[in-house]
């Protein structure tokens, strides 16, 4: 059975709009992402990973080409409709406030709640399940500011999960985390893809972990953007283009980046 196409783009140019001519960060992006894909976007700082994710969440408009989301033009979605298709975990930290873990996760239900934001039985169920899936239930009554970075990240993922969308987009979800917690996050995301059929797109600097966990990768560099499975990318010699030749190299046998 053919899997459902979730996101696709053809010859997409992305960047920032300015008054006269837009600043193009990168172009020639061809992706087709299917239901249940776990996509990791790799590339060095400033290459356009976040720009691409912002374009997917309509924060930025494409400069050229367009994006299809579930076989409809991304532009045709209102922000309300989009909220039930794509949920996000952003790199920005949330403002200092006294929300409890449960309250914060329950905010993920806002697209479905009534005008006064009352949780229905179903909303409570989804929130509880999101907490169970992310193992955040045990500290649901803690305040956000009491949490460690690793816990906070799980809570933010739980919030996105509570939003109950087929697509989840996470911008550098493991930044600030130690290796153990980084691996835990990758495992959690992989579990969500496998058990719940989510389509997850992340940007990451964890090259080796991304290669190990993600089902497809997008490798971004100045001139070309490669998209495919690890094997396809090795054949296309995409990983070699990621960094300048000195310092780090890709060992295609172990499928890992190594330090020279």
């Amino acid at each position: 059975m053919a899997k459902k196409n979730i996101i696709s783009s053809k010859n997409l140019s992305i960047g920032y709009p300015t008054k006269n001519n837009p600043v193009v960060i990168t172009s020639g992006i061809d992706v087709s992402i299917f239901e249940g894909d776990f996509i990791a976007i790799l590339g060095k700082n400033g290459i356009g990973k976040s720009t691409f994710l912002k374009t997917l969440t309509t924060e930025l408009a494409p400069i050229e080409g367009n994006i299809q989301l579930m076989e409809a033009d991304l532009n045709s979605y209102s922000s309300k409709q989009l909220a039930s298709v794509i949920s996000v975990v952003l790199t920005e930290s949330i403002p200092m406030n006294q929300l409890t873990v449960q309250e914060l996760i329950a905010l993920g239900r806002q697209p479905y709640t009534n005008w006064i934001d009352n949780l229905s039985e179903r909303d409570t169920e989804v929130v509880n399940k999101a907490m169970m899936d992310t193992e955040t239930f045990d500290f649901k009554d803690k305040k956000i500011y009491e949490l460690s970075d690793g816990m906070k990240q799980r809570v933010l993922i739980a919030r996105a999960l509570a939003q109950d969308t087929p697509v989840m987009i996470l911008d550098e979800p493991t930044v600030h985390l130690d290796l153990y917690h980084t691996v835990q996050i990758f495992k959690l995301l992989k579990k969500l893809v496998e058990e719940q059929g989510k389509t997850i797109i992340i940007s990451s600097h964890e090259l080796n972990l991304s290669i190990k966990f993600a089902s497809k990768l997008m490798v971004m560099n100045e001139t070309t953007n490669h998209f495919g499975t690890t094997v396809e990318l090795i054949a296309a010699k995409a990983f070699e283009t990621l960094f300048p030749a000195d310092g780090i190299s890709f060992d295609s046998e172990s499928q890992q980046f190594v330090i020279k």
Binding site: K80, L82, V88, L104, L107, Q110, P111
Partner: peptide
Amino acid sequence: NSLLLGENYAKSLGMN
């Protein structure tokens, strides 16, 4: 309440 997460999260929740 959604603004407690910051404007970008609020927007991702469908808020105008």
